[in-house]
Write a protein that binds this DNA or RNA. Structure first.
Lengths: 211, 211
DNA sequence: GTATGTGAATTTCTTCACAGCA
DNA sequence: TGCTGTGAAGAAATTCACATAC
């Protein structure tokens, strides 16, 4: 079983599935399951079993033929591959409705992402508190992050402001951005952006409702 | 240019991009742009121009060779294809941090999705108000929706509660579900589910930060 | 000249199917 | 026997390239 596949770049869908597998393994661990086969994980995630095995093959060999995978060990391997061993510091821009909710969303901290600063451009919001954090002026973001050194930013502002905010984050040294604004901001190469448009998700559902 | 492609099923990625195109066309209309070529739309969305034209070809011919597309007209066509001519009523389950933000998220109403009821199972939350809406007991959901007739549901509850909530929504006649719980709920065929795991999005960013 | 719509070519992604190992 | 890891096959999605239309 020499692993030739490990030389190839894992595909984008593969990376997105790794996160699903970690989630599944975490749930299995909670239930006290020690070992799982690729078929077990396939059943729980809806991913094809061969797909699961091929996804892993880009990174190494983690299973035992005839037995399956050690749940805890595989979870640790995948967390390591995804860069989740260390906690991540995250900047949040936008202290409106959605931003406030994201600041208090327990899932982030539970899984190792800590929001360390919140920014806005609205003078009425600057200085107020969201949880433990005081909302700061977005103009001060690059300076503030020179100290905090967060490498991930979350954008929760209206579409019209998104590009300016993204530019500010990049100027502040942020290398990865999760954008909730319904816009497609442009960034220089080397910066990763993921766009999550909540309304767009509903629009896709709307399409399938009538087809 | 007889359209043979229109007989084929549009792919899943095609449907997701349609929403991006609508967003882009809306922005162009706002800027007063009347006509756009596939290259213009490609530049604004990051999608390849041929991809854009092929995506449209599943639904008809909307452009004029040598001129491009009428921005307003194409937007209307795409909105129609996506089922966005009529407003959609939406049920929201989960009145916590995230649920409350979604209830107040202006992007939904602006784009034709109205949250018409909010549910929770926490006695402390039932009876309180979120915006104009009183939080109702999730047990009453099927009964309440017999009157409201919403066909879309949003799930913003902890992972452990997700499957039960999804089952309740389906029992209430909901046909499409947007799930924010970090879980993969199972539904009978005929029901569409889209899973949005916010933490998972950050995990994917984490991967790309180190590769 | 300019830009569409689309077959054909290409690339990417998924699934099959089986050799090899515990 | 049971299940992994993976080459080969197959399916899906993207991009090219050009005939066609304005």
């Amino acid at each position: 079983m020499s692993n030739r596949n490990a030389r190839l770049q894992p595909s984008k869908p593969t990376i997105e599935r790794l996160s699903t597998y970690i989630k599944c393994l975490r749930a299995m661990k909670k239930e006290g399951i020690l070992t799982a086969s690729s078929a077990d994980i396939a059943a729980a995630t809806g991913v094809n079993a061969a797909q699961f095995r091929k996804d892993l093959s880009y990174f190494g060999e983690f299973g035992t033929p005839g037995r399956g995978y050690d749940v805890e060990q595989l979870q640790a391997h995948l967390a390591n591959i995804m860069g989740l061993r260390e906690k991540h510091r995250v900047l949040l821009v936008g202290a409106g409705n959605l931003g406030s909710a994201l600041a208090g969303y327990p899932g982030f901290k539970e899984r190792g992402f800590e929001i360390v600063a919140v920014f806005d451009n609205d003078p009425h919001k600057i200085g107020t508190k969201i949880g433990d954090l005081e909302v700061m002026d977005v103009d001060t973001l690059p300076k503030v992050n020179a100290t905090l050194n967060a490498d991930i930013g979350i954008v929760a502002v209206p579409a019209a402001a998104a590009q300016a905010v993204v530019d500010r984050l990049v100027a502040g040294g942020v290398k990865a951005i999760l954008n909730f604004a319904p816009a497609t901001p442009q960034v220089r190469s080397g910066i990763v952006v993921r766009n999550v448009d909540l309304t767009s998700e509903l629009e896709v559902l709307s399409y399938y409702l009538q087809h």
